[in-house]
Every structure is written in C-alpha cells, then in structure tokens.
Amino acid sequence: MVPRVLEVMHGHLASWEKDGKVPMFRAARLMGVDLGMDVIMQVQLPEDVDRQWAKSQVEVFLDGLYALPVSLPGTALRKAIAARDRLVRIFEPGVQQRHAEFQKQWASVGGSIQAYADMVLEQPSRQATTRPSSDGAAAAPPAAPGPKPSIMAAQLMGRAAIDQCVLKDAAMSVCHMLVAAADTTRFALFNTWSLLAMSPRVQDRLYEEQQKVIAQYGPELSYQATCHMPYMDATLKECMRLLPASAGGIRKLTRDLRVGQYVIPKGEHVWFHAGLLHCTDPALWDGRTDYQHGLPPHMDWRHNFDDAFRPERWLGGEEGRPRYHFTFGTGAHLCIGMNLVYLEIKLLLAMVLRKYRIRLECPDMLARCGRLFPFLVPEKGTDNVLLEAREGLAA
C-alpha cells in the first residue's frame, strides 16, 4: 500500500506547497477521505458516478456523525442520513461484483481458508505438494496465484460466504469502513501536526533522524525505512497520549467494577475515555487531584507544554515510561487500523519534515478549540500550519 499512499500524499503536499501553508483540520479530512476511498478500500464506483461527488457525500456523512440527534429537515444528521443512503445505493453494484468474484474463488479452493490466503497473497502453500494427506494420497498443488485483495475485498469475504447476506448490509459495511478510515486518519493527522508545530525541538530531532534514515535507506520512502524511525515512533505515541485520535468507546462489563465508593454492576455499559485514562496512568500520575489547572503535569499541554510533550518518555532507559496507551483501544477490541494510521502519519511527517519546519499561524489554536469532545475542533480560520523551508532546501 505504501506506493499508493505516497502518491496521494504527494498530490496533497504539492497543493499545500503552493500556498506555503495548510488549513490542517480541513486538509486532514480531505486526505483521509482520499486515502480511504482510493487506497485503503479501493472503492469501485459505477461509470456514471463522479468520484469527487462520491467523496463529497462521504464528507457529508462524516459531518453528521457527531451532530445533535435531531433528524429535522436541513439538520446535519438528516443530511448525513441522506448521504449515507446515496452512498449505499452506488456501492451496491461493486459489492455485488466482489461477492460473485469471491464465491468463484472460494469454490475453486474447496472452501479452504489456508488455500484461499495462499492464493490471494501470492504465497506458496504452507503444505508441500509432495506431503501426503491424512488418507495417504498426495496433497493437491496450491491454487494459482490471484490478485492481492484490497481491504474492502478482504472485509467483504465473510459476508460474501454467507448465503443469507443482504447486499445493502454489505454496502453499508463499506460506508462504515470508509468512515473509520477517513475520520481516524483525519484526527490522528490533525492532532499530531498541531502538537509538532508547537515544538521546534522535537521537529529538529525528527529531522536529524530522517537524515540517518536517508543515509541508510536512500531518499525514497519505503515501508522498510518507516520501521527504523524510533524517535518518530515515540513522537506519535506521545501525540496520541496527549491528544488521542479516538475518544474511547463503549464496553459491556463482564464483572462488577468498583470505582472509588461506587460499584457498577456486571452487564452495564460504560464509556472509557482514552484521555482520562492517560491522566491516571500510574507510571505518570502521583495521585493528586488538586492541580492548579485541573490536570496533572504530564497531561497539561496548555500550561506545561515542554514537560507534557516529551517523546523521550517512550524511549528505552527513560524513567516514568507510560504503562498504558488507550488511543486505539486495548485487548480484543484493539483498533484493526491502528498500524495503518501510524504508517500514514509516519510517511507524511517524514515527507514534510525532511524539507520544512512547521509552525502554527495561530499559536494558541489548540487552546481556543471550541469543542473538545469527542474530538478537538478548532475555531474557523485558526488551523493554518505554515510550511517554512529549511535552510538550503528549496520550497
């Protein structure tokens, strides 16, 4: 996926470079939708459907996700529902085609999960062709390699194999996957850029690391190169610790939960908030609740930025290394797209920081955000990030 991700990002960066600045909240949304539609899901549309129009409908759908639950004419929620229904209708033909393709492939390998995986991933079968089967006969040779699937195809496989699958449900699933891909990318990019733009020190360390990566792997970004950026990894974890790209989620209790003097009984649903859990990480929190500004120092980026935003805490040998990280969930419900989001951010930051320093046009943009839950939303016109060419590097 890396070449396709880079292609999308280079296109967006070229438009940002012309202006010398990026309206990051809006730009992150647009990039998230492009990556979701064109790279992650590789959505197929009917020939008579304009792709940019379809992307605009995804945006309308996204706008209504966190709106007031009032479905009156003209409200964001009503518009979002209408956009969702339009998207489902135009996705159905492509989903139907994928179903038919999958069912043929599934039948050709006898319904074997391993054989199907070998086929679509273009890997040799784990079972040697000369190894006898349990009944003493020679094992069948592996199926011929097929095209590598997109994430959209992969997540539709299970539905396609179920006879009673409803086509509309599968198309709706594509909608939801697009939302997950686009919105997670958007807030992860926005939050990360916002914090980095406030820290020239961290940017300089990232630039120094990129020079080492270039010396070892060459100037072209690759997946291999992204796997050898320890300070970048630490920076992204620190950004997601301070400003999680996800507000958490809902869990059903499997046993009674004691919280202070209260007991929440088994079977109740609770909301876990990633930011609040990071506040009370026992490796960082001293247990006090009487802070002057309401937050412990390791979370108070408004009044204690240099100490709160410290990627070094994630590196080996650092005292007080965070013990927990809940931005993308935990356990069995860990976000399936977590590593993909990290990969996207690493690629974009490496691409940009090799050439530019970034700086907030409105230095107190984050502090002025009018909405904090479920995500930070900046005041209109305050989210511009300036691109300042590093000395000796052409803009």
Rank of each mutant, 00 (worst) to 15 (best):
L236F: 01
A180G: 09
H176G: 11
Y231Q: 05
C165M: 14
A197N: 09
I162K: 10
S246I: 04
L189V: 00
L178H: 04
E220V: 15
V202W: 02
S246A: 10
C239E: 03
E220C: 15
A197F: 05
N191L: 00
A180K: 08
V174A: 10
P200Y: 13
M198D: 00
Q216I: 07
E209L: 03
M172L: 13
P219I: 05
S194Q: 00
I162D: 07
S194M: 00
T185F: 00
C227W: 11
C165Y: 12
W193Y: 14
M172H: 12
A197C: 10
S194L: 06
K237E: 03
L167S: 13
S194R: 02
M177L: 01
K237S: 02
E208R: 03
Q216T: 12
Y207S: 14
L195G: 14
L236H: 00
H176L: 08
V213A: 08
G218W: 12
Y217E: 09
L189T: 02
Y207K: 13
I214K: 14
M229K: 06
G218Q: 14
Q211S: 12
A234H: 12
K168Y: 05
A182H: 06
C239I: 02
D204Y: 09
D204C: 09
L189H: 00
A161P: 07
A182G: 06
P200R: 14
R205Y: 12
P219E: 10
T226D: 07
A182Q: 03
F187E: 00
I214M: 11
A181T: 06
Y217K: 08
V166A: 13
K168Q: 10
V213F: 04
S199C: 13
K212Q: 15
G218M: 13
A245H: 03
L221M: 08
Y231W: 06
T184L: 04
Q216W: 10
K237P: 03
L242C: 04
V179L: 12
